[in-house]
């Protein structure tokens, strides 16, 4: 397999080749980014290399910041092989104020008993060995 950067995404990546590989460098620098269409201004997160509305590839990288409210979550007890040692872990879906949604793990520092709908969280870039990812955490 040719490794060209994106294999660093997440705890166990399946994809190595994509036009949005620069996300990895941003995450390594501690910044979470999406893309924005230069023509119509539509925001994409996770980032897309192409605007589906304008059919243009003229997109720019923009920071994704702010709080996200928890929509739903689950605690996984039976995981894929690469995650067997990590169970149980929590996965969540959250929505930013601008309506963009993120699917991400929820930090182990957050007590599962505290998790509820609409809980305010922040998305933080984190390292995992050689890789980088983002996760939902409690705001500071």
């Amino acid at each position: 397999m040719i490794w060209v950067g994106f294999e660093k995404f997440g705890q166990s990546a399946y994809i190595s080749q994509t036009k949005v590989t620069p996300l990895i460098s941003y995450l390594e620098k501690g910044v979470i980014v999406g893309t924005r269409c230069k023509k119509c201004g539509k925001m994409y997160f996770p980032p897309r290399a192409d605007c589906v509305d304008c059919r243009t590839s003229e997109v720019e990288w923009v920071p994704i910041e702010g709080r996200a409210r928890l929509i739903t979550f689950t605690e996984v007890y039976f995981g894929p092989p690469a995650f067997e040692q990590s169970t149980p872990y929590v996965l969540g879906l959250a929505e930013f104020d601008n309506g963009l949604r993120v699917f991400a793990p929820i930090s182990r520092n957050l007590d599962r008993e505290q998790l509820k709908m609409d809980l305010e969280l922040v998305l933080k870039p984190r390292h995992s060995g050689e890789g980088v990812f983002y996760q939902l955490e409690k705001p500071d």
């Binding site: 994106f6 997440g10 399946y14 689950t74």
Partner: peptide, 25 residues
């Protein structure tokens, strides 16, 4: 583990039951 979007969601350890569980929650 590859039942979902392998680019953006599978790298976090998704499973088929996990997705439906999120609807249940």
């Amino acid at each position: 583990g590859r039942a979902g979007d392998v680019m953006w969601e599978s790298p976090f350890g998704t499973t088929m039951p996990a997705y439906y569980a999120m609807y249940a929650t």
